[in-house]
Design a protein around this nucleic acid. Structure first.
Length: 278
DNA sequence: CTTGGTTCCTGCGTGC
DNA sequence: TGCACGCAGGAACCAA
């Protein structure tokens, strides 16, 4: 599942690849996918536009166009940005951009939890409503223990559930929340409000570090094949995971006898080491 | 405001 | 080998 490091990896590739290129054609797949406005209007507003830059906000990918509009992509669970050749359209391909130099870019999403949104500079439509109350980027300077602490204090919900809240930690999903809590030595099912100030500080740093490591290793590609780079290759952070997907296996901390356990927290499968995390 | 449940969708793992 | 089944999971949405 693409989270902040995966989307950032894709963004860095795309920025080099499509900046300065003009969109000459737009094609859509047959299956319905959440798209605002409809395909016809999206196509109309994209045609002839040049990509000025590719940005990211949380898990959203944002193409800034020279006509003042922005093409916003959320990859959901299984969304991919790929480059495919000519016909026919891939089975799960929903939108394909064709650039003036012959290059193409495709939005592919088997489970169709992803979404496409074209916004005119200004008010955000309902489809990117999640962006409206999004907090600062967890890997930015503006993100600190004060910010996280404010959102955790007094809350009874499990700390992991709040890490998955994009208002609290935008870009964080199931994998990196588990990994951050492991690094901070905090059990995912702890009541958020029970965290002491040193724990909040540790979690703030752990979150930033694990996300940066994820980016450094080009994201996490699991066996389900959800996330891959634009060229179809795999990331490599899956080789460095400490707890996620490792239930029943030994904790990787040197000398630790713990066995990684899995449980449901807030309806999400959650992994932790009962020895390292309190 | 908070919290919990439901919905969308397909691929994959499991059991028989 | 093949089929039925159930589950994962981001986020919008609704209900209490």
């Amino acid at each position: 599942m693409p989270e902040l490091p995966e989307v950032e990896t894709i963004r860095r590739f795309l920025r080099k690849q499509v900046t300065g290129k003009r969109i000459e054609a737009v094609r859509f797949g047959a299956k319905r996918v959440t798209m605002h406005p409809g395909p016809a209007a999206v196509s109309r507003r994209l045609l002839g536009a040049t990509v000025m830059n590719v940005g990211r906000r949380g898990k959203y990918l944002v193409f800034h166009l020279n006509n003042g509009r922005e093409l916003v992509l959320h990859l959901g669970m299984s969304g991919q940005v790929r480059r495919f050749g000519c016909d026919p359209m891939h089975r799960h391909e929903h939108m394909r951009l064709e650039f003036s130099d012959g290059q193409t870019l495709s939005f592919v999403d088997a489970r169709r939890f992803g979404r496409v949104c074209l916004i005119d500079g200004g008010a955000l439509p309902s489809l990117v409503k999640g962006m409206e109350h999004m907090g600062p980027e967890p890997i930015s300077r503006g993100y600190n223990a004060g910010y996280l602490g404010t959102h955790l204090s007094g809350r009874k919900a499990p700390v992991k559930s709040l890490l998955l809240d994009q208002r609290v930690a935008c870009g964080v999903g199931n994998i990196y929340s588990d990994e951050a809590l492991y690094r901070a030595g905090i059990r995912p099912d702890r009541q958020a409000g029970s965290l002491r100030p040193p724990e909040v500080s540790r979690l703030t740093l752990a979150l930033r570090d694990v996300l940066k490591d994820g980016i450094r290793w080009c994201g996490t590609t699991m066996k389900d094949g959800g996330y891959v780079l634009v060229d179809g290759s795999a990331g490599s952070f899956q080789n460095r995971l400490r707890v996620y997907g490792r239930d029943g296996e030994r904790c990787r901390r040197r000398g630790c006898e713990g066995v990684v356990r899995r449980l449901k927290v807030g309806g999400r499968s959650t992994h932790f080491c009962p020895v390292c995390q309190k």
